[in-house]
Amino acid sequence: MSDGTPKRSRSLWLVSVLLLLSAAALWGSSRLVWSASARDAGVRGIVLDQRTGAEEASAVVPLALLALAGVAAMIATGGWPRRVFGAVLAVAGLAACWTAVNGVRFGGFPDGAPVAEIHAGRALALAGGILMIAAGLAGFKGAGRMPRLGARYSAPGAKRSVRDPDTELWESLSDGEDPTASR
């Protein structure tokens, strides 16, 4: 394997893991509290109104789903389509980062507000966005070097030396040749 195949597949694994971690971080941040405010509830008095990441920034869950779809896109494509998907993922990561920092407050929370959870939710979304940017850029940069799904059947390469006659028949079928024509 002197053609760098282990390194090539390792970079595809890295992109896939980064996208899966990004999806998990974005989904997890959507479940945490992102904002808290005191509001007048009439007879009940002043109540603490808490909003989760999915309620506060509705783009967080679709961005997590895009990161999951990005795993399939990076595995199934190659060449310029992979570059396009990498660029889309990098831009979506920027959008996730913007969503995480847009409207962040460091003070002025009402009594009883889960301040640590608010900051953790936004920080998790920011981390998910950074991971998505890294995966998109890595996919964009390594688009031509990473292996792709079905690459074995896309173009005939140099003839492989086959030792087993049965394997040789199957290989010739895979190459689109009729193994019975020469026999």
Rank of each mutant, 00 (worst) to 15 (best):
L26T: 08
V162H: 00
A127Y: 08
W80M: 07
L126V: 06
V47N: 02
V33D: 10
V43D: 11
R39S: 10
E56I: 00
A138C: 13
L169H: 09
N102D: 14
L89K: 05
T77Q: 01
L20C: 05
S16P: 01
A155P: 00
D175W: 05
W170S: 10
A92N: 12
V60L: 12
V88C: 03
K159E: 10
M74E: 13
L89R: 04
L18Y: 08
R122C: 06
S2V: 07
F106A: 01
A123E: 05
S161G: 06
A41I: 11
P110R: 14
A38L: 15
A134P: 05
A135C: 05
A73Q: 05
R39A: 12
D175H: 04
K7G: 13
S22K: 02
G78Q: 06
L137E: 14
A123K: 03
V91R: 03
V71I: 15
A25H: 01
W34R: 06
A155K: 08
A143W: 11
D111C: 08
A120F: 09
L169M: 13
S35Y: 03
L21K: 03
T99Q: 10
A54M: 10
A41D: 14
S22H: 03
G86M: 04
F106Q: 01
A95G: 11
A90H: 04
L48M: 13
P179S: 03
R152I: 09
L21S: 08
A41R: 12
R39E: 12
A38C: 12
A127R: 07
N102I: 00
P114Q: 05
S35V: 02
R122W: 06
V84A: 14
G78P: 02
L65D: 06
A125M: 08
L124F: 07
A59K: 06
G93C: 07
R152C: 00
L63V: 11
R8F: 01
M132G: 11
L63N: 04
A92L: 08
A76L: 15
D166Q: 14
S22D: 07
D49Q: 10
S9Y: 10
G128Q: 11
L12P: 06
G4L: 07
I118F: 06
R82E: 01
S35Q: 11
A113D: 02
